[in-house]
Design a protein around this nucleic acid. Sequence first.
DNA 1: CAAATAATCAAGCGAATAATTGAATATGTC
DNA 2: GACATATTCAATTATTCGCTTGATTATTTG
Lengths: 238, 238
Amino acid sequence: MSNLIDKHEFKDSAYGQLARIGKALSSPKRLELLDLLCQTDRTVEILSRETEMTVANTSQHLQVLEAARLVRAKKQGRFVVYSLADALVSDFFRAFRVLAEDRLAEIEQLRRRFLEAGADLDPVDAEALIDRVQKGEVVAIDVRPIEEYKTAHIPGALALPLQELKRRLSELPRNKEIVAYCRGPYCVLAIDAVRLLRARGLRAHRLEASVQDWRARGLPVAIGMEQSSIKALQRRAR
Amino acid sequence: MSNLIDKHEFKDSAYGQLARIGKALSSPKRLELLDLLCQTDRTVEILSRETEMTVANTSQHLQVLEAARLVRAKKQGRFVVYSLADALVSDFFRAFRVLAEDRLAEIEQLRRRFLEAGADLDPVDAEALIDRVQKGEVVAIDVRPIEEYKTAHIPGALALPLQELKRRLSELPRNKEIVAYCRGPYCVLAIDAVRLLRARGLRAHRLEASVQDWRARGLPVAIGMEQSSIKALQRRAR
DNA sequence: CAAATAATCAAGCGAATAATTGAATATGTC
DNA sequence: GACATATTCAATTATTCGCTTGATTATTTG
């Protein structure tokens, strides 16, 4: 009977365990890491570069997330690849974001202040997008790094990472509307892409939703590379 | 253009705002307060008594929750009544608890160690409960404080706060099965109730679900006082 | 208007946390 | 087996957090 615990211990440690998850979500940098891992798996070094932290610091934050069982570490050769512990975590993170945006008007204000310069980057209606892509009315481009595209992307979207966008402008039709998307509301890749495209005289818009938001609405998601993107790569290789 | 912000500021403060919610959820005591407020509104003093904290400390924690817009304070006379900012918060808290239980096996172990003494307090099948209550096969009792019962309870359940249980034992039929419920998995009221009833020779079981869990499953919820509970009160008044 | 009550504020202390730095541990390559 | 690379560990510092104590601000009651 030595391992019996009393009411207070029970309550305190039950809430204490819950708080472990809360603590993991209480640091901006950890949330950024989690958001990145929602897109695709990554090594410590890549994560440290993307979040602009030292490797040691990144490693420590990742260990906090791991202790809360939100992410998992897997050793591959001399790399350690971190990934979400479960798809449920991605869903939860989205719910967390929605709650936060709902509660904290400050986030919305921030976004507006940031977007002010680029005028309206008119968010696009998600439901209508797939049809218009299939009909060839618009070209959807995924401006995230290629690994994230491979993990999951919007069906019919062209893989066109922001870094390559300037060099590959000729691949885009000048007479069609272009819709760019990235990791979601806090990601600036699509915003940059739209600004660049508009500066070159193209009709570009931004889809604010991420692939995860897309999936959460019950819309289909594609994985791997698509023919159109492979062809584009081959054209460039020549 | 002075209020424009750059990418880094945007990203940092967006995640910073998110982290405010995370911080609010990172303290066991704050989670306990939130869990209590999911049941019903309360004044600072009552909350401080229920969580066994000083009033000043309770007040401070509540202000953190308020800053994260998870709860709302309303001055009523010389009391300040805190309540959930929104019903969404209750849903989110449940999702948070589910995620935590899913991730942290430690919580389940804790519960098992705690329940060991009382043997199995056989959790009851929620779906079947309503029918059995209506057919008169079982008596459901809500052992939370009466205010929480009034805010929301399982239809047909008798309001029988744990504190009054000992005195009002005679109201319970000795030949029927009794199902007690309280605030949910981390609440010990129903556990105590079942132990007491069993010690008196009654056939008692515990429903682990809270009213909120009940509602989340799409099952009906009643508010206010029910006839059966009012009659019981009147019988006692005579 | 004074007394009592409810809640908040302000100051202070010890513990926990985030980030830096440099060393240590694996792992793969020459 | 020496070396380079990826990651973690350990020690340090500045900051933040949780909690206590005592004073202060509202509001009701006598």
